[in-house]
Each structure stands twice: as C-alpha cells, then as structure tokens.
Design a protein around this nucleic acid. Structure first.
Lengths: 347, 347
DNA sequence: CCCGTGGGTGTTATCGCTAACACTAACTCC
DNA sequence: GGAGTTAGTGTTAGCGATAACACCCACGGG
C-alpha cells in the first residue's frame, strides 16, 4: 500500500471518523506529485494519458472529492451566488427562483438562498450581509417591494448585486416584467368589450408590481377617456380578493374588474358567485400572472402571463454580466402576454 | 497610516480592484497581532476591553469581513446545508423549503439548493454529489418520489442525509406527513355523509404521497365494506384533474370524489361545472393540501391540511440530530388535519 | 520570597489547494 | 549542433483563517 506522506491520522473527521482524502493522498496512491493530480482534476497543463489514468484510478479508489474551501481560499472564487428570496409561496417569486437556479447551475454556480419573511430596508440589508459572509460572488435580490428598492440604493458599488422586479431607481441592474404594459393589455381588452370603465383590485401599496399594474390600468382608462373608479386594495391573497369582491358586489355600475393577481381574482370570483353575480354575464374579470390553475377557475380566468422562468434566466445573465464588470445601470424588460379565457368571454 | 505587513497590492480583486482586508490588515491597523483579532471576532479567549475596542474600530474602519473559505479550511466546517428540491411550484415542497431555511438560519446554517427537474435515481444522486462538492455539512432531500427513495438507499453511511416525505425504506432519517391518515380522514368524512363509496383521483404513480393517499383511501373503503371504484390517475395538475372530471362525469353512480391534491380537485370542480354537475348537491368533493386558495374555490373545498412549515422545521431538527451522530433510522410523522368546507357541505 | 495560576497577548504550524516557476528530456529549426 | 520549444512533471510559496503552545506579567498563598 502507498504510504501517506502526511502525518495522517483522523483530523477532519466525518461521522465515521476518517479524514477525507486530500490531493496529497491521491498523489501518494498514484505515485505522482500532488500538482499532477491537480492538473488532472482541473485539466490545466499537460499530463501523459497513462499518468492521468493512474491518477483517476487513485481518485476513484480513495473516493477523493476536492476541498472547495481550500480551492476557494487560493482562487478567491467560491462558485456560489446568493439569492435573497421572499419567504412566500407566491407563484412568481418561487418560479423565478427556479429559473435562476437552473441558469446558474448550467454556468457552474451554486445558489445559496437567504429568505426574508417581511421585506424591509433592514431585513434585506441583513440578508445581503448574511450572504456576503458566505462569500457569494454575487447576489440577486428577488423582493419586489418599494422598500427593497430603498435597501438597494445603498448597494455597494464594488460588489455585484442585481434586482429582479424592483428597485428601479437603485444603482443596480434590474430585470422586470413590464407590469404597466401587462395592465394596459388587460384593461384595453376589457374596454374593447364595450365596458365604460374597469375597476381594479390593486396589490399591496408597497409592492412595485402593484404600483405599476395600477399605473398601467389608470393610464389606460385615462387615455381612453374612461372614468377611473376608486382603487380597492388587497394583499395578493384570495381572501383579500374575496373581501374586495364583497364590497364590489354592492356597486351598481359594475361591468368589469381587473384584479392585480390571479389569487385575488379567484377570491373575487368566489364573492361574486356568492352574491349571485355571474361572470362573465354580469361582470367580466381579468387577473394577472397566469398561475397554472387559472385555466380551471370558475370560470376560466383571462389573465396576463409572465414568463418567470425566462425572468430567472435573464436575471442570472444580468448578474453574470455585472460580475464581468458590466454596467450598474443595465435594465432588462420582459414583456407579458394576455391570455383570454371565459371570464371575459361572450355573454 | 498603519502599514500593511503583507506585501499587499491587489490580489483578490473585487470589481473595484481592491483586495479584501484580512485579519492581518485589521491587526496592523489596531496595532495587535492577528490572533487577537481572531479572538475578538470569535469570542474565544480573553481580550482586554480596551484592546477589543481598538480591534472593533479597525474592523469597522476597514470593512473587514471574515473569509469563510479560510475559516472552513481550518475548521473543517462550512456552516452550510444542502437541500435537494424538486423544481416545481407545488405548494408543499416550496413551503417545506422555507420551513427548512428558517430553522437552519436560526441555527446559524446557510442553505444551498440544488434543484432537480425530473426526479430519478441518478438525477438525485447527481444533485447530492453536486452539493457534497460544495462541502455542505448535511443534505436534505425533498423529493417525494419512489425513485428518490431508491436513490437514497445508496446514501453513504458516513454522511448525514435526511429525507422528507419519501424514501421510507432507505437507511436515512425520514420525516413525512401521515398521508394514509389524511386520506383516511377525507374518505371517512365522505362516507359518513352517507355515500356508498368514494372515487379517487390519484397522483402520479411514482410519488409516494400519491401511493399512500391511495392506500389510505382504499383501506378505508374496504374497512367500511364499501366498493372500491377503479382509480383514476392524474399528475397533480389542474389539467389532469379536469380530464379526470370529464371522464367521471359520465359515471352514473357518482356520489363523492376524493382528489389527491387541491389542484386536481380544482380541475375536477371545473369539469363538473361544465358538465352541469353541481357540487356538493350532485357530487361531493374533497382535496388534499389545503393550498391557501382552496377556501375560495367554487365551491370552497374540503381538504386535508398539511403543516409544511412544521415539516420543514422538524426536518432540520432531524438533520441536526443526525449530524450529531444520531440514528440513521429516525422517523418523524406529522399528522394532517381535515378542513371541512362547502364542497362536502349539506345539499 | 518564590511559585503557581490565570489573564492577556504573540508566534508558529497547519488546513488543502493552485500559481508560479524550475527542471528534464525530446524534438524542431536553421 | 547549439538554441529555442514544448510536453510532462516536480518544488515551493502562499491564500486567510484557527489551533496549539509559548510567553510575560500581576497577583495570591504558603
């Protein structure tokens, strides 16, 4: 048996009490220097095929796995990116996360997440600091809040941070879905059906997406010379949509409602059903997001589709560009698509 | 200005081109040795309050951040756990992930995720290997598939891996929700309403949860001497529930249906609505999961609630125990709860 | 008064890896 | 045939932290 050049003995003990093999251990078994092993592993520098084979066999035999900490220490690269995610099951953020993870993995990066239950300036700053202590090479902030934007305004210039869906005024690259345009599409669609105006259930005031959707809705009404009803505000949940629906059900001139997201639209549909209001016969309803269930609501929901996987992919791309020294003011916009279903169908 | 003892110069360059300060840099500024700085940071060993203050000031001044790679190299601990997650927006897995992340963060661990788009023996093994290369200290596999269980059978004994919701025969600690019991509750509830039998829309055959729910349903029917209708199989999606509903709508003796999850129940409700079947008047329907929207379906859905945040928390606990040398065969079971709503209400 | 003890601090070795360079042998080129 | 090249390999010096031990000093007890 090859002898270990090191003093050996169980130092870094795993549960089983044995030290993980190191480059030097592999080198000993293969009868080469540790540098040759390193070259085989990283494909740097030339190695004779027969030497390589011996090294690979030794690696296999010992079950060698490179020590990423040692590698990171010397190269200064950890191969890890951080994602600050909102701790919620909202369809959008969760999908975006997977899009990012996918793109990152393909590019050889791992993803560390740090979740934030209630977004705020300091909680996001904490999460970012938390990730930086993990020595991530770059950070993506998925926290589409106004407060997130404010937190990002203090983003360090010498560290790559990008934002998705928020922080439009912050000095970081931002990728977002064109919420205003999506809202415009939904609203115009409803107006085109002949309704005098369109009501809106907005999302929480501190969400940029909510603001932009509301803005797009309002602009469109104004451009078409339609009256702008008072805004009803929800919190994205079906429950809040339901409550909005109960209050809307009392309005007499109710023709069309554009809900800020699909969950609220669902609550709305529920409230209308209970109030004996038929959709689309009495009132037409549209949502936003196109969650996979939207096609099976009662009735199937007209909504605005956002391609979150694409958003995730492009977010990673933006971060990669920024890590390469790219512009801090890069912007990317994903255009949403209107999906028409029965909730705005013929009467 | 204090002089850097090191040769200095920009080595590990950030985007701005400056080297991150090291312990030695801080020591130079504070006029102490690097060891004293280390002691201040880690709270190991005694330090005079006045020295500590100088060190803290230097840390602040330089914006020093400990190098986690160097620390990991020498301590052998990375403070990171890996989670193998299914790349899906299914409500359960996503919620579980947040529960885990929360508990882990409180315990001082970071979470690295590796997602798997289509679970299978090798893809899970790949993800695990991927995480081990990241030097995580333990791994949680959220992949409630039969194949995941098989992948875990090869789990190394000397490395802490725990599974959530699957791999019951594997030599790893497992935490799961008692699916059979949940299915029993739903089925008994429907039977108690006086129906001769209950139909079932099962989830995909390779999901353990689907198997267990089906088993719980079947057992309950048999125990009550009810006939067992043929099983209709979906894929958890609303679309598949819809298709199941279309085929079920043709059955003449249809009284009650227990859907394998809430999404499929939604599709089912949709198909019944289209077929002119009224729920609960003509048919009663129950689901599984209690997604936040279930209360706003048309009609509101009776379903079985799983506390996924709790599952996440307990999963972390199980991993922590295992990393402490705990048993490989630990098991934990979370009991679900039946939530009764209108879909099984009075006629 | 000397020794032991513990507070407070510094020195040195080491973790496992890659970068940089050194070296040998064979081969090409004029 | 001497001077590059290039393939193939080894040696050495760090990366930035903690561990282990050494050291000095003040203080208390016998």
């Amino acid at each position: 048996m090859a002898e270990r050049p090191r003093s050996g003995g169980p130092l870094k003990a795993t549960a089983a009490g044995t030290r993980q093999p190191s480059l030097t251990d592999v080198a000993g078994v293969a009868g080469v220097s540790h540098m040759t092993v390193s070259r085989v592993i990283n494909g740097t520098g030339p190695v004779r095929p027969e030497t390589r084979a011996r090294v690979l066999a030794a690696i296999e035999e010992l079950g060698y796995r490179p020590n990423s900490a040692a590698r990171a220490l010397v190269t200064g690269r950890t191969g890890t990116l951080g994602v600050v995610a909102l701790e919620s099951n909202l369809y959008g953020p969760a999908s975006t996360l997977y899009g990012i993870e996918n793109a990152a993995r393909e590019a050889g990066y791992a993803i560390t997440i740090s979740s934030v239950s209630r977004p705020g300036r300091s909680s996001i700053a904490d999460a970012v600091e938390n990730l930086r202590r993990q020595a991530v090479e770059g950070i993506i902030v998925i926290a589409p809040h106004v407060s997130a934007g404010r937190a990002l305004e203090a983003a360090p210039a010498d560290f790559p941070v990008v934002a998705v869906g928020g922080g439009e005024t912050a000095p970081v690259p931002v990728i977002s879905v064109d919420q205003r345009d999506g809202a415009r599409r939904a609203t115009e669609h409803l107006l085109a059906l002949g309704h005098r105006t369109v009501w809106h259930i907005a999302g929480p005031e501190d969400w940029l997406e909510a603001r932009d959707r509301e803005l797009g809705w309002r602009e469109t009404l104004e451009r078409h010379g339609a009256g702008v009803p008072r805004v009803i505000r929800g919190d994205w949940s079906s429950r809040s949509g339901y409550e909005a629906g109960r209050s809307l059900a009392k309005e007499k001139d109710l023709d069309a409602v554009f809900a800020g997201n699909d969950q609220m639209a669902l609550g709305l549909l529920r409230a209308f059903a209970e109030a004996g209001i038929s959709v689309p016969r009495d009132v037409r309803v549209a949502g936003f997001d196109d969650v996979p269930e939207a096609a099976y609501f009662t009735p199937p929901l007209t909504t605005v589709r956002q391609d979150f996987i694409e958003v995730g992919r492009r977010t990673f791309g933006l971060l990669a560009g920024r890590m390469d020294g790219g512009d801090r003011h890069a912007r990317a916009l994903v255009v949403p698509e209107l999906i028409v279903r029965e909730s705005t169908g013929p009467r």
